[in-house]
Nucleic acid binder design. Structure first.
Lengths: 154, 154
DNA sequence: TTATAAAACTTTAAGCTTGAAATAATTTCC
DNA sequence: GGAAATTATTTCAAGCTTAAAGTTTTATAA
């Protein structure tokens, strides 16, 4: 998914775009992953889950998390398990529907996330430093329209 | 890495861009992974390795592959192991430097890749269909400049 | 009601991924 | 020449990821 087009023709331009998109996000992702590990001894998936939960103090269901993060159910189970064992997150059985459990950041989890998120935002600013403000806005706009199209599509 | 900004301020615009970039590439990647599995019973990492090798009939060293694909050495070892066991790739010890081994597509591997790549290119065209030709070119240009900046940076 | 379907989640097996440690071959340099 | 550093690769442990199968609980509907 990271190699070049293997042909010429009409699909070539979009294939090139896709490869660049993927290389850019992999490069940035790898750098962020490494820094999260080195500086905070955590991982991207844990960070993602905590970021999702941070926005919603009342908590999220497992299925909400997996939908929001674009990953499978079983995946979220494992990550939340580890966050619970680290005391950063709680899983609370609900009275209403006993199949579901509400996942919330603990106080320690919220505090920890806030610290990391502030540094993380600085890293992203640094890593995307080569993109001008104007470009950043236009790129973000294009990607937003891609997303809307996509969501209409399914 | 997929949740929204947690603050306002100067870094906010680039953080938003990064989150959209990541969501877009994850969405497309997930779709391509699923189709590769369903239609060709293969995986993205295998496809990536084969794409890299397809461009270079004389083959690549393990370390070339890992550098090119932006993944770790140990990772490539496992993927190549599996491709070898499937008869799609060969690993040849070199006379000159016996630490290295040259990895090449087999005839079957090249044939298989060509088939998959053609379909894959069509998928990408379809999945990025919402992006106009003009946008595709501009986006690709921006991402290229990002990449150059990055590479100068390290 | 009460079988049947659907929903929410967990478990499992297989594969991907990394960073660190281990091996083996080559180079460097005294 | 031979110790020491470097390079290329593999192995390993831990964690991430998915799809599919399994469990428990709730909803549907004949």
């Amino acid at each position: 998914m990271v190699a070049g087009p293997t042909s010429t023709g009409p699909g070539k331009e979009r294939l090139r775009l896709w490869i660049r998109l993927l290389r850019a996000s992999r490069t940035i992702e790898a750098e962020l992953r490494e820094r999260l590990k080195k500086e905070f001894d955590t991982t991207l998936p844990r960070f993602d889950v905590m970021a999702a939960l941070y926005r919603v103090p009342e908590g999220m269901l497992m299925s909400d998390l997996s939908r929001f993060l674009l990953v499978s159910n079983g995946n979220v189970t494992g990550i939340v398990d580890r966050l619970v064992s680290e005391g950063l997150v709680t899983r609370a059985r609900r009275n209403g529907d006993r199949r579901t459990s509400m996942v919330r950041l603990t106080e320690e989890g919220a505090k920890s996330f806030a610290t990391i998120a502030a540094v993380h935002e600085g890293w992203v600013g640094e890593l995307l430093g080569g993109v001008s403000d104007d470009e950043a806005r236009r790129l973000a706009g294009m990607l937003k329209s891609f997303r809307s199209n996509w969501e209409g599509r399914e």
